[in-house]
Design a binder for these strands. Structure first.
Lengths: 328, 328
DNA sequence: AATTCTATGTCAATCGTTTGACATAAATTA
DNA sequence: TAATTTATGTCAAACGATTGACATAGAATT
């Protein structure tokens, strides 16, 4: 059995109340007592029962992270960064992969709300999951839109789309193609698209668009892209995510197009992984460190002091990383 | 405030004991009572406080997952699969990224041991972290060696190494190069290496080896590989992981080597992600579904009935997926 | 009609920690 | 010296659910 508070008290030769005081740092305490208690705690390898503590409204030190899945490199990276920051504050992260299954997401939300976690960071789909509105848990979201008072942190998707368009055109592209995931108002994708289209049209061009349904397999995506390359003959492509951009480059090469001479490509996200293993790809990079920092900061803000007024949206600047897939 | 058991009882018009009986399915219960109670629970959106339950030795329904990090695609995939299986059993996963930091891993272990989780699945480094031996928590491990009674699940690393060697040689490779991560006895890497070397030597060849220190950046890895390609002139490479294999192929192409004509490459792991976005790469595939299944099954075995004798090691068969990076 | 099951209720202790109320005494300050 | 601050202790009531002991009464079985 785990040692309990009483055991610590006994070993330290003080009362249980005193031990509790030391742990919670309340009331008057002498250094020597604190020392004795800490030493006893160490010797016994004591850890207060978070169950018992939680019963008194203390924090569980647990945060729920709801994301679609962690096999997407950009999500894996955000989640990893968030987890690390939570750890530094003494919190642990429960990983909830919705896998694009609303039912799973809903169930997870209920489980989290029960009374397990102190807060939630969500970056998942949530097509009108009413449970989000049903809780008083502090929630912050990454890159998703909520009507209610849930603050959202995201990259400047619109600006990133514009930047991509501007860059491609400046580098001489004339036949522009936009390859996007599902076009859905709730999704960040949307801003990337509108930003891109706006900037393209402003410069007097008309962009072609290829929409890849959200749940299509890479094989289908490849085929669709392949087709489009042959038909539309683009010389500049913007993809709303890096993975799609990789497919574009690969398919282009297959049909003998040279990058960047025949075709320039810009992606979006800039996860470390993609950058390291696809060094050719130019991309609009999300500031993941800042995003993770801000998400966690906002969450703890709501956790610690209820009254501070938070903004509804925090938009962080993106950056173009220029690699071989665009001309110099 | 969350509704409590008492509120449910009141609404259902029964005693708190009865509600508890319904929840825990103990004693005699009529269908009609169960119905009333479940309806009341639903209406109130009631969830029993897991804190209160945990005080009575009930499960927290929480499992700790300790891994190095989730940005490695193969780990992301295992973790995601494990999480899904835990979810199906009503459990949640705490994600603990050690980030190759023994101190962080140790701290996480302590936190988990405290009394938060019901069990642990670890796939991390654990260079002699004594805490693993200090707990009675059920633990199972993925691909790591422990002395004690912690069961290990892993792919047939040795056999995979052999298979890679056999394949390369059968396809006509004569100058074999092994590119590996750190050679460390505790690591699965090691078996892949020895399996490969054994099979190569059995066939009368002598393999060259390049060791890439564990924490070197991709840039350094690239340079090392580049160097070796120029000096050793291999015509067959086995990498102990897919990511390294990707680097090899890219560097080879840079110096004008044709794959698979001049150089054949086989990797290891076979994560969905790598297969989808690097379709050229042949690789030894780990049976991730089986691995996740087994890990979770073993864990629950230990969770549910203490007495069943588990094996110390479970080795699952691997498979070669042959793509363009080896000759037909 | 007697016995056993089934279905529910009451009551209270328990899990490990927190916390408030109150007491005491030594150390410090006015 | 008196008043205050500091440092600890004792005691007991929470927190929310579980569970065992025991009671009661209708239903089903013998």
């Amino acid at each position: 059995m785990q040692p309990k508070l009483e055991d610590v008290a006994k070993l330290a030769g003080v009362s249980t109340t005193t031990v509790s005081r030391v742990i919670n740092n309340r009331g008057y305490l002498s250094e020597s007592t604190k020392d004795k208690v800490f030493k006893a705690m160490q010797r016994l390898n004591y850890q207060p029962s978070s169950a018992a503590r939680a019963l008194h409204g203390k924090q569980f030190k647990l945060i729920g992270l709801i994301f679609a899945g962690i096999t997407n490199p950009i999500i894996a990276e955000v989640v990893e960064k968030i987890e690390d920051r939570l750890f530094n504050r003494g919190y642990k992260a429960i990983i909830c992969n919705s896998l694009d299954n609303p039912e799973k997401e809903r169930q997870y939300l209920r489980m989290l709300m029960a009374n397990q976690v102190d807060g939630i960071i969500t970056g998942s789909h949530n097509e009108g999951i009413k449970e989000y509105g049903m809780t008083e848990l502090p929630i912050v979201s990454y890159d998703r839109y909520f009507k209610d008072k849930i603050p959202t942190v995201r990259s400047d998707n619109y600006g990133g789309g514009q930047l991509a368009a501007k860059t491609l055109i400046d580098k001489g592209a004339k036949k522009l193609l936009l390859v996007s995931g599902s076009i859905d108002v709730q999704m960040p994708n949307n801003d990337r698209i509108t930003g891109f289209n706006k900037a393209v049209e402003d410069r007097g061009y008309t962009p072609q668009t290829v929409e890849l349904p959200y749940n299509s397999t890479p094989a289908i995506k490849r085929a669709t892209i392949h087709q489009s390359l042959l038909i539309d003959h683009p010389d500049g492509i913007f993809c709303t995510d890096d993975l799609t951009a990789i497919l574009c480059m690969q398919e282009a090469k297959k049909i003998g197009m040279k990058i960047p001479d025949d075709l320039q490509v810009i992606g979006f996200d800039g996860s470390t992984n993609v950058q390291e293993y696809n060094p050719e790809l130019s991309t609009i990079v999300q500031p993941l460190d800042d995003i993770a920092d801000l998400l966690v900061r906002l969450l703890f803000n709501r956790l610690d002091n209820e009254d501070e007024k938070l903004l509804e949206e925090y938009t962080l600047p993106v950056e173009l990383i220029q690699r071989e897939s665009v001309k110099n």
